[in-house]
Amino acid sequence: MLRDITIGQYYPVESAIHRLDPRIKISISFLYLISLFIVKDIRVFGLVTLFLLMIIKMSKVPVNYILRGLKPIFLIIIFAFVINLFMTPGDSIFHYGIFNITIQGVYQAVFMVLRLVYLIVGTSLLTLTTSPIALTDGIEHLLTPFKKIGLPAHELAMMMTIALRFIPTLLEETDKIMKAQMARGADFESGNIFNRAKALVPLLVPLFISAFRRADELAMAMEARCYRGGENRTRMKVLKYEKRDVLAGLVFGLYVALIVGLRFIM
């Protein structure tokens, strides 16, 4: 059930994209998201498609693995399509009762769906090719300049690491408690929404208690291992920009220049 959700799950292979510095990948992904909103002409998406395909090819992540990841948000995509299809005013090409489809509506619907899909594919490429640890490290480094204005960069990164570490443990625990309550006759599957919400109490109470107990013990264990925040801490893995990172930055710069340029030309 839960393991079916593949969107954004790290896909462990060796590739040029995987090897890139997480900082450059995070920055590129961020700018890429902005670039999608600069695009105003549907034809420019051709360029985005080429760019994405090139990255996917280089990342060695199978295309259908990425597409499978879109499954959970399929409904949202359909919804965006339908809303735009019917709600855009303009020259009518189909009319039935309250339904009215316009030429602009079709254009807009396709445009929005493409943007949405590319938004998701682009960001999931980041998490697919970057291990959670590298991602956390990258975020911590990128946020470091903001420390001066009081942003707790190290603490945020540590929280992310711990969350990632405990997600599998808590999933396993949820499964265990659920089974234990089912053995006592609990029913999580039938009944109306109200009944189902009520049925979750025997699951959630023990789960919260256990999460708090774990947090407490973990804090103690961290303290016992001399953890005292980010001050004077060294790292085993130090991030270093390589030639390939600079190259990636240049290629991406070219892409952005094209997108921005096309916006003014078209």
Binding site: I133, T161, L164, E217, A221, T234, M236
Partner: peptide
């Protein structure tokens, strides 16, 4: 400590073992 699950901090074995020395400021 007693509970093996509640004292491992990091998402990889090597990262976890490095946690202590990192806190102590041991050179990379």
């Amino acid at each position: 400590f007693q509970n093996p699950d509640n004292q491992i901090v990091a998402t990889l074995v090597e990262e976890d073992v490095a946690f202590g020395p990192e806190n102590l400021g041991v050179p990379t």
